[in-house]
């Protein structure tokens, strides 16, 4: 095959300069103070923000679970449709993803407002109004709305490969709905589930826009804290780097639970 190692050179330079070095700089900033001296203070002071970290993890987990529960039946139904309908339906799932997520989140702002459409609609029946915007529920809703397709698509992709006769065989052999679900369907779609979980959890835990637009000021997440250190009023690169480092560790831990990434990477190369 056509081999030319030198062709990799420009990219290798680029990769080191703009992927590797920036990460090293983040680590460097996380462990130094403003004068450049080594310190653990940045990492230590993160204890102050425990509530924010816990809230981020919690909301991201809730959003991921909701996505999984909503997406699983839908993906299964999609995978059992006629092939021609399937491609149209997957397109319908993907279409909202092509809208910029700022616009998608903005759409919910006007729906959830105190005198927004939902409250007005409920008002017709004499219910409410409810405080919906600026709650943690609204933040979770924003995450679910933005990232649901990321859960549906990998699940669907794996479920399409499940032969209907396997499920029928299980039923013929006396399995009830729950056994079919837990002993056939879920084990067979495990790869899709783990991919979906990472694809929803990682952007959910690191978002700062959804929490800002739908959560008001009271639902700060890790992403908001980081953004405040770099572009906001707090303006502390060292502390921001320490927070980024912790976020990276959380994400890597999540990935190591859900993927055997070296094998997958090999498969991709």
């Amino acid at each position: 095959m056509f081999k030319k190692r030198s062709l990799a050179a420009p990219y290798l330079v680029w990769m080191v300069a703009f992927i590797a070095v920036p990460l090293v700089i983040v680590v460097y900033f996380a462990f130094t103070d403003k004068t450049g001296a080594f310190t653990l203070e940045n990492i230590m002071s993160l204890g102050m923000y425990t509530t924010v970290f816990v809230r981020s993890i919690l909301l991201a987990i809730v959003a991921t679970v909701v996505c999984l529960v909503l997406a699983f039946p839908l993906s299964y139904m999609l995978s059992r449709m006629h092939t021609s309908t399937q491609s149209m339906m997957t397109m319908l799932v993907m279409l909202p993803m092509w809208m910029n997520f700022l616009l998608r989140t903005y759409a919910w702002m006007s729906l959830l407002e105190n005198n927004g459409l939902i409250n007005r609609f409920l008002g017709v029946f004499g219910i409410g109004p409810f405080q919906m915007i600026n709650t943690s529920g609204a933040v979770v809703l924003g995450m679910v709305y933005n990232y649901l397709p990321y859960m549906i698509l990998p699940l669907y992709t794996i479920m399409v490969k499940i032969d209907s006769s396997v499920i029928e065989a299980a039923q013929d052999l006396g399995a009830n709905m729950f056994s079919v679900l837990f002993r056939v369907l879920i084990p067979l779609s495990m790869d899709g589930i783990t991919t979906g979980i990472t694809m929803v959890f990682v952007p959910s835990i690191s978002t700062f826009i959804i929490s800002r637009m739908l959560g008001g000021g009271s639902n700060l997440l890790i992403g908001d804290l980081i953004e405040l250190q770099f572009l906001g009023n707090s303006y502390n690169y060292n502390l921001g780097s320490a927070m980024s480092l912790v976020l990276m560790v959380i994400v890597l831990m999540c990935m190591s639970f859900t993927t055997a990434d070296t094998e997958e990477m090999e498969a991709m190369v």
Partner: peptide, 13 residues
Amino acid sequence: IDPEIITGVSMML
């Protein structure tokens, strides 16, 4: 795989 915010922050630094 990295959250976008980390990519953004690291390049900014």
